Amino acid sequence: MANALVAGVSPDGRHYYPAFPYTSYTGMTAVDINDLFAYLETLPAVAGRAPPHHPSVLFAIRRSVGFWKQLFFKRALTQPGPSAASVGIERGRYIVETLSHCAECHSTRNILGAIISSARFAGGFDPQGTGFVPNITPEGIGDWSENDIVKMLETGETPNHGRVGSSMADVVKNASMLSDEDRKAIADYIKSLPARPTPEP
C-alpha cells in the first residue's frame, strides 16, 4: 500500500492514474501509512470488483502515465517520525497539503491535468463536474477569521450563514472528527497561504 500512496504504483508495478491523489499522499509519514493500513485491515471484505477505467485518449495507454509522472510528479521522501510531532502551521501544512489533499480540488489544472502552481488553492472546476470549487487563499475567503474556518470545518456553516455543499459536505463530515487542535492548525495554514486571484472559469 505504501507504494500506491507515495509512488502511485500498483502491486503489479503499473502506474495508477493521477485521479488517485498520490501526488499529495506522497508526503505521508511512515507512521500514518502504517496506521492507515492497520485501520483498513479491520474493515470487512466487500464482494465485487472495481468497474473498468474509461480514461481520456491521453491516458488510454497506461504507460503514458509514467511520462506524465516524469513531467508533473515529484515523489517525496517518506518521513519516519509521527505526523503529530509538528504543531501549528506546520501541522496544518501536513494535513492540508498531504492527508486532506485540499489542492487536488481547490486548484486549476493545465490541459494535461496537472495542478498549475500559480493557481494552487485559487479555485478550479469541481472534479465531479458540479460547478467551480472556491478559492481558499485570502483573495477568496476574504476576511474569514481562523475561528470562521474552524467552525466551517466542524459544522459546515460559513460566516455568511450559509452552508458548504457538494463534495465539501463530505470533507466537513470527516473534518468534524478531527481534534480541535488539528482544525485550528488547518485554519492557521490556510490563513498563511499567499493571496492568488481566482482563475476565469
Rank of each mutant, 00 (worst) to 15 (best):
L5F: 08
L5R: 02
A7W: 01
G8C: 04
G8H: 01
P11I: 13
D12W: 08
R14V: 05
H15C: 09
Y16V: 07
F20I: 15
Y22F: 14
T23Q: 02
T26M: 05
M28G: 01
T29G: 09
A30E: 07
I33L: 09
L36P: 00
Y39M: 14
T42K: 11
L43I: 14
V46P: 00
A47D: 08
A47M: 04
A50D: 11
P51S: 11
H54I: 12
H54Q: 12
S56Y: 00
V57M: 11
I61Q: 08
R62L: 10
R63K: 12
G66N: 05
G66P: 01
G66W: 01
F67I: 15
W68T: 07
K69Q: 14
K69S: 08
Q70G: 15
R75C: 07
A76I: 03
L77A: 14
L77H: 10
P80L: 05
P82Y: 06
P82L: 09
P82N: 10
S86N: 09
S86T: 15
V87N: 00
V87M: 00
G88F: 00
R91Q: 04
R91K: 08
G92Q: 01
Y94T: 05
Y94E: 04
I95Q: 02
V96Y: 05
T98Y: 02
T98S: 07
L99Y: 00
S100Y: 06
H101M: 09
C102P: 03
E104D: 12
T108S: 13
